[in-house]
Computed example of a mutant assay.
Amino acid sequence: MHIDYHTHHARCGHAIGQLEEYVKRGIEIGLDHLGLSDHMPLIHIKPEEYYPEMAMSMDELPRYVEECLLLKERYKGQIEIRMGLEGDYIEGYEMEIEKIIQDYPWDYVIGSVHFLGKWDITDYRQTHGWEDREPIAVYRRYYDAVQKAAETGLYDIMGHLDVIKRFGFKPGPEHADEVIHLENTALAAVRKSGSVMELNASGLSKDCKEMFPSRRMVEEAIALGIPLTLGSDAHQPGKLGEYLDQARALLQELGVRHLAAFEGRERVMVAL
Results as ranks from 00 to 15, higher is better:
Lys192Tyr: 07
Gly231Met: 05
Leu259Arg: 00
Cys12Arg: 05
Leu85Met: 14
Asp59Cys: 04
Glu21Pro: 06
Arg82Ala: 12
Lys24Glu: 11
Gly13His: 12
Ser57Lys: 12
Arg82Leu: 12
Glu198Leu: 08
Ala271Tyr: 02
Pro135Phe: 05
Tyr5Leu: 15
Pro227Phe: 02
Leu182Phe: 11
Tyr139Asn: 02
Glu91Ile: 13
Leu42Tyr: 01
Val113Pro: 01
Gly159Lys: 02
Gly255Thr: 02
Met58Tyr: 03
Glu73Trp: 00
Pro41Phe: 10
His258Arg: 15
Tyr75Lys: 07
Ala150Thr: 12
Arg166Phe: 00
His258Lys: 15
His235Thr: 06
Phe212Ser: 05
Lys239Thr: 04
Pro213Lys: 04
Glu21Asp: 09
Gly87Cys: 14
Gly129Val: 05
Lys76Gln: 14
Gly255Ser: 08
Met158Leu: 15
Asp38Ser: 10
Tyr5Glu: 03
Asp156Gly: 06
Ile3Arg: 09
Leu161Lys: 03
Gly153Ile: 07
Cys68Leu: 10
His44Ser: 11
Leu224Cys: 05
Ile180Glu: 08
Glu67Lys: 11
Ala55Cys: 13
Ser195Ile: 11
His2Asp: 09
Glu174Trp: 02
Leu71Arg: 06
Ile136Gln: 01
Arg215Asn: 01
His128Tyr: 14
Arg11Ile: 12
Leu69Tyr: 01
Gly111Ala: 07
Glu151Trp: 12
Glu67Leu: 10
Gln102Asp: 15
Val65Cys: 10
Glu242Trp: 01
Leu19Trp: 03
Ile27Tyr: 00
Pro173Ile: 07
Arg141Val: 04
Gly35Cys: 05
Asp120Ala: 13
Glu174Leu: 07
Met58Asp: 08
Leu204Ser: 03
Glu66Gln: 07
Arg215Gln: 10
Met58Val: 13
Leu230His: 09
Gly264Ala: 07
Gly203Cys: 07
Ile81Thr: 02
Lys239His: 14
Tyr104Phe: 15
Val270Pro: 00
Ala234Thr: 10
Asp132Tyr: 07
Lys170His: 13
Ser193Trp: 12
Thr185Val: 12
Ile97Val: 14
Thr127Cys: 03
Arg140Gln: 14
Glu253Ile: 02
Glu98Ile: 01
Ile222Cys: 03
Ser232Phe: 00
Asp245Trp: 04
His33Pro: 00
Arg265Glu: 05
Ser232Trp: 01
His235Lys: 10
Leu259Ile: 12
Cys12Glu: 07
Arg25His: 03
Pro135Val: 03
Trp130Leu: 09
Ala176Asn: 01
Ile226Trp: 06
Ile222Phe: 07
Tyr243Ala: 01
Phe169Tyr: 15
Leu161Met: 15
Arg257Thr: 14
Ala176Met: 04
Val256Pro: 11
Glu98Val: 00
Leu250Met: 15
Val65Ser: 04
His128Pro: 00
Gly159Asp: 08
Tyr93Cys: 12
Phe169Cys: 06
Gly264Tyr: 08
Gly238Leu: 12
Asp132Ile: 00
Thr127Lys: 10
Asp32Trp: 08
Trp119Cys: 05
Arg215Cys: 02
His33Phe: 14
Glu80Ile: 09
Phe262Asn: 04
Ser214Gln: 09
Phe212Arg: 06
Asp162Gln: 12
Gly35Ser: 08
Ala15Met: 09
Gly159Ala: 10
Ile16Val: 14
Ala234Tyr: 00
Val190Leu: 13
His175Asn: 08
Ser195Arg: 14
Gly30Trp: 02
Glu53Gln: 09
Met1Gln: 09
